[in-house]
C-alpha cells in the first residue's frame, strides 16, 4: 500500500491504496465518483476520460502511481454549484446524449478540445478530435452540435472576462 495524494475536483485527497490501481478504479471504487465510466477498458472508447493537470486522458490506462501529486478533474467537478458547465448545458439543450454512458467522457474530452482550439474550432477539426470517444446510440451529429454550441458559449464567456 502507498499513500497517494491528489487534488480531485479542487479538494486535496489522500488515499491508502496499491499504486498499481487504475486511476478509474480509484475514482469510482475508493472515492465514489461513479460519473467516470469504464467502457472498453482498452483505451479506445473514452468513457473514462478525466483531466489530469488539465489534459483529457483515459483513466483506465493510468496507474494511480503515475498520477500521484497531480490535480484530477472529473465530470462531478465541472459544474458551478447548481449551474451546469456550458458544455453540460449545451449537451442538454442540443439533445447531445441518449443513453448517457459515453457522455461524461465526451464532455471531458470536449472541454479540452475547446480549450486547445478556442474560436478556431471548426466542425471538421472537432470530428477528428473526437475520434477517441465512441458513442453507440446516436451517431455523432448532436454531440458535434452540442460541442460547437458550447464552444461559442465558452469563448464568449472568456471574451467577457
Amino acid at each position: 500500500m502507498s499513500t497517494i495524494r491528489l487534488t480531485v475536483n479542487g479538494k486535496p485527497v489522500s488515499v491508502e491504496v496499491e499504486d498499481r490501481t487504475l486511476l478509474v478504479h480509484l475514482l469510482r471504487d475508493h472515492l465514489g465518483l461513479t460519473g467516470t465510466h469504464v467502457g472498453c477498458d482498452t483505451s479506445q472508447c473514452g468513457a473514462c476520460t478525466v483531466h489530469i493537470d488539465g489534459r483529457a486522458v483515459k483513466s483506465c490506462t493510468v496507474l494511480v502511481g503515475q498520477a500521484n501529486g497531480t490535480s484530477i478533474t472529473t465530470i462531478e467537478g465541472i459544474a458551478n454549484g447548481d449551474e451546469l458547465h456550458p458544455m453540460q448545458a449545451a449537451f442538454r439543450d442540443n439533445h447531445g446524449l441518449q443513453c448517457g454512458f459515453c457522455t461524461p467522457g465526451m464532455i471531458m474530452a470536449s472541454i479540452d478540445i475547446v480549450r486547445r482550439h478556442g474560436a478556431g474550432l471548426t466542425e471538421d477539426i472537432l470530428r477528428q478530435e473526437l475520434e477517441g470517444n465512441i458513442c453507440r446510440c446516436t451517431g455523432y451529429h448532436n454531440i458535434v452540435k452540442s460541442v460547437l454550441d458550447a464552444a461559442g458559449r465558452m469563448t464568449a464567456a472568456q471574451a467577457a472576462e
Binding site: S43, G46, T49, R55, A56, V57, K58, T61, V62, A109, D112, I113, E129, E131, G132
Partner: peptide
C-alpha cells in the same frame, strides 16, 4: 497517431 487522449500520454 492514436487520438488526442493517447497523444497526451
Amino acid at each position: 497517431l492514436g487520438d488526442p487522449a493517447v497523444r497526451y500520454r
